[in-house]
């Protein structure tokens, strides 16, 4: 029953990051921080984990002199997220029946 429930998405924050990256082509660190209302450190560690899993791509660039990091979901990340969502929905449906 727990199959397809992805370990990487057990954390609310990671699930949140993937949710907003599904509907936005790319977002920078500050936009993510504001949307999810997190501290720098907290968000950074979760982003690292998602990057390691291969679920997000990171692009570092400079806007003027300020460093700016853009994040976008990879194909693999999108697939994993959708599978996770489907698994969640199935769990809800199943437990409704029982």
């Amino acid at each position: 029953m727990i199959q397809n429930i992805n370990k990487a998405f057990e954390s609310r924050v990671r699930l949140g990051v993937m949710s907003v990256l599904m509907v936005n082509e790319k977002l920078d660190f500050n936009a993510l921080k504001e949307l999810l209302q997190l501290t720098d450190g907290n968000l950074a560690s979760h982003l690292k984990a998602l990057e390691k899993a291969g679920f997000i791509d990171v692009h570092k660039q400079f806007i003027g002199r300020k460093p700016n990091t853009q994040y976008m979901a990879t194909q693999e990340g999108k697939k994993a997220f959708l599978a996770h969502l489907e698994a969640l929905e199935n769990l809800v449906k199943k437990s409704k029946k029982s």
Binding site: R12, L15, G16, S19, V20, M22, V23, N24, L35, L85
Partner: peptide, 16 residues
């Protein structure tokens, strides 16, 4: 699970 799905939906909506 329902809460989680609701939260995902709200985040998607708010961010786009």
């Amino acid at each position: 699970y329902l809460n989680e799905i609701t939260e995902i939906r709200s985040l998607m909506e708010r961010s786009s």
